[in-house]
């Protein structure tokens, strides 16, 4: 059991981090806070991938004459792509938030939803 925990501690921690991020994304009311949670969530997934690429006694995946074992380069490649995706999503999200703030003078979800609900009632009646 102890072996199980110790041999995979990187994964456990990255899962813990993911869950912290995911919680922030779902539970927080502030729009920017959600995006912060999203960042943590995604970066933790990246940590999970990178941990997967590590090989015991491996060296960095760069050609080296004295190297015996290289680390797995594939997760690195995938994560390079994913980081870019993540930052792009963040940028779009923040741009959206700026627009939302301009329109509603608020970045609190429940306040905005209240305003919207009021508007909807008005158009219906």
């Amino acid at each position: 059991m102890l072996d199980l925990i110790l041999s995979k501690y990187n994964y456990w921690i990255s899962i813990l981090l993911m869950m912290i991020g995911l919680y922030g994304m779902i539970a927080k009311n502030n729009l920017i806070k959600k995006i912060i949670g999203m960042n943590i969530f995604q970066v933790s997934v990246f940590l999970f991938y990178i941990s997967m690429g590590k090989v015991r006694d491996g060296t960095a995946p760069i050609h080296w004459d004295r190297a015996l074992i290289y680390d797995n380069p594939i997760p690195h490649v995938l994560i390079l792509t994913a980081i870019v995706v993540s930052i792009s999503t963040t940028a779009v999200a923040l741009a959206l938030i700026i627009r939302i703030y301009k329109n509603f003078q608020s970045i609190e979800e429940d306040q905005i939803l209240k305003v919207l609900a009021r508007e909807e009632n008005k158009t219906d009646s």
Partner: peptide
């Protein structure tokens, strides 16, 4: 830093710059 210690140098660079 964690990624550098995991030998993911390129990713670490990118994260430092981008993240």
């Amino acid at each position: 830093i964690v990624w550098t210690r995991l030998n993911a140098v390129d990713v670490a660079f990118t994260e430092a710059a981008v993240g």
